[in-house]
Design a protein around this nucleic acid. Structure first.
Length: 291
DNA sequence: GACCAGGGTAACT
DNA sequence: AGTTACCATGGT
């Protein structure tokens, strides 16, 4: 892999295990817009980034080398060796061959902790398209303009302070529904420092999980999503209805409770459970495994 | 119109 | 400790 500069754009050449469509549409993130084939706008870290993929080239438009080193290489998880991860997973479990082959270009984005916390609170009992819609509503209402593309403005994800000052009714107007009090409460606790995002980053996985679950509206599944997508804890195995069905169908052969599925993932996939979850979720959901 | 969606809480046994 | 109704909202 090497990085080339082309006017205001950066080109990543010969990057393996990278498919921008799979990375964005595997269900881990919500703020992106498809503008063409393998061509997307990503809203992250208070920036608008256009990423287009052509053959073995990934083009990052209007980006400096400095931003790449500081933000995007980390966000896109560029320096993680996914070939090695996939090989190790396959030696642990050859049943993964199909999902890994089909979804070979997944990478787990390193997303902002605060944004994943609110996003996955919104996600409960909602479909992915609705989640995206509600997050866009919130960003337009409470965020700030951070960029433009083809005459359309794009907004940052609101800060804790921006959300802490609103009301339950205003949040419901953004179609948050019964999640509105959860969002408001969480925002006020983060804004006041009662919940410290930086402490979560330093805490052990189990300590961080415990703190996350203490937030009203955050249970096991949402806490694990924040741990995996927003805190880089790649050993956790978020277990939603889909992953539950998939694991039951592919491995356990019977209805199983959450703790049994967690135990299975930990012993079966070990430290790589988060990656395995991502391949299984995206492939299994698309093919309705177990449904 | 019932049923379900990348669940969680509170009020029940 | 283990179930169950309910929570907004939009799509099928």
């Amino acid at each position: 892999m090497k990085i080339l500069k082309d006017n205001n754009n950066l080109i990543i050449e010969d990057v393996k295990s990278f498919n921008i469509m799979q990375i964005l549409e595997c269900g881990q993130c919500f703020r992106f817009y498809k503008i063409g084939e393998l061509d997307y706008l990503i809203i992250a870290h208070n920036r608008v980034l256009r990423v287009e993929q052509k053959d073995n080239q990934v083009i990052l438009y209007n980006t400096s080398m400095e931003d790449f080193e500081k933000i995007w290489s980390n966000y896109l998880d560029i320096h993680t060796d996914y070939n090695s991860i996939k090989e190790t997973l396959l030696t642990k479990d050859s049943n993964l061959i199909e999902s890994i082959n089909v979804k070979e270009g997944i990478r787990i984005l390193k997303q902002d902790t605060w944004e994943t916390l609110i996003s996955f609170i919104i996600s409960q009992n909602k479909q992915i398209t609705h989640i995206k819609q509600v997050i866009e509503n919130l960003s337009k209402e409470y965020g700030t303009i951070i960029g433009e593309h083809n005459g359309v403005d794009y907004y940052s994800f609101p800060t804790p302070e921006q959300l802490a000052g609103t009301t339950d009714e205003a949040l419901r107007n953004c179609k948050t529904g019964f999640r509105a009090p959860y969002i408001l409460d969480t925002s006020q606790k983060v804004a006041s420092g009662e919940i410290d995002i930086n402490e979560l980053k330093k805490a052990s996985t189990s300590e961080a999980r415990e703190k996350l679950i203490s937030i009203k509206g955050v249970g096991n599944k949402i806490a694990d999503c924040v741990l995996l997508y927003g805190l880089g804890r790649t050993e956790v195995f978020p277990t939603d209805v889909w992953i539950k069905r998939i694991v039951e169908h592919m491995y356990l052969k019977e209805e199983s409770k959450l703790d049994k599925i967690q135990e299975f993932a930990a012993t079966h996939f070990g430290e790589l459970a988060g990656y395995a979850q991502q391949y299984l979720f995206y492939y299994g959901r698309e093919n309705k495994i177990g449904k």
